[in-house]
Amino acid sequence: MSKVKYYYDSDTLSYRKIERKKRRTLKYFLAFLFSSALFGLLFVFLASQFFKSPNEKALERELSNMQLQFELLNKKMTEAEAVLANVEERDNNIYRLYFESNPIPEEQRKAGFGGVNRYKAFEGFDNSKLIKESNKRLDILQKRIVVQSKSLDEIAILAAEKEKLLASIPAIQPVNNEDLTRMASGYGMRTDPFNKTRKMHWGMDFTAPRGTPIYAAGDGVVERADSNSSGYGKHIRIDHGYGYVSLYAHLYKYNVGKNQKVKRGDLIGFVGSTGRSEAPHLHYEIFKDGERINPINFYYGSLTAEEYSKLLDRSSIENQSLD
């Protein structure tokens, strides 16, 4: 119950009751509401300067977590870059060097992205620099991985080609050591057995009994197996590819035919004395790009160091050839 208020009226010399007008009451009420609202806004403003809302605290935690995640991401990228750098170094200095391929330049591996600003969408934020740098590093890392992946694909092809080359080069002695009577004559100037003059002997002569097996010195395709070449008698020519051809002459008989594919070590024929020959033996030649070369340099696939040394000594003696 509201209190009744009075005032003293000097004209009537009596106390009179104070009557509150409705307009004034409304005015006071509105003034109270305005002052309350003003005070409330002031309180909220001051509170916002010194106190944080639950939503702000949640956003701060989320931002802090995001910064931590970016730092961890950058740390992982640093580790990945170190591993990739090691692979790149081995790729340039071991793999590509071994397969005789040019190293990939550093500027090609670590090239950035020119032209359009790829990171414009990350600008205008408090952590724009961190986000832009992280994305830039990640893009360059991905590009380096692509370059390295293509390089490894190329090396795989080179390795397969190298393996094919190594298998194709005529690299073994065509007659087994245990089947040899002796190594009669080597590559170089020798005495002709028929006219006794010195002439160039373009291959190596391996003396062995008639019927001794002869083996392909490398993978290839039989180019010829006939007796239509002067002086060689029955002979075989194998095209090994890469410019290499091996020739086996004075055979007793063949074990392969023209256009037949052979592997290193396959039995291709037997020692004989056909054609311009003084005694049963194998005359063996190697051609590289159409030029005859010394077969002594191509026995690393079948002889020990000691056997090769002895063969080298015997082949260097200027004696009489057998053809």
Rank of each mutant, 00 (worst) to 15 (best):
K3F: 11
Y8W: 06
S10F: 10
Y15D: 13
I18K: 14
K21W: 15
R24Y: 12
K27Y: 13
L30H: 02
L38V: 10
V44W: 10
S48K: 12
F51C: 11
S53Q: 12
S53H: 04
A58G: 07
L59I: 12
Q69C: 02
E71A: 10
N74P: 03
K76T: 12
E81A: 11
R96F: 02
Y98S: 03
S101W: 09
P103D: 08
R118L: 15
N127G: 10
N127Q: 13
S128A: 15
N135E: 13
Q148V: 06
K150D: 11
L158F: 07
A160C: 09
K164L: 08
S168G: 01
I169E: 03
P174N: 04
V175C: 07
V175Q: 03
D179V: 05
M183H: 01
A184H: 05
H201N: 10
M204N: 05
P209E: 09
P209R: 07
T212W: 04
P213W: 02
I214D: 00
N228G: 15
S246Q: 02
S246K: 00
L247K: 01
N255G: 10
K258C: 14
K263N: 13
T274D: 03
A279W: 02
A279F: 08
G290W: 01
G290N: 08
R292A: 07
Y300I: 01
Y308I: 13
R314G: 00
R314I: 09
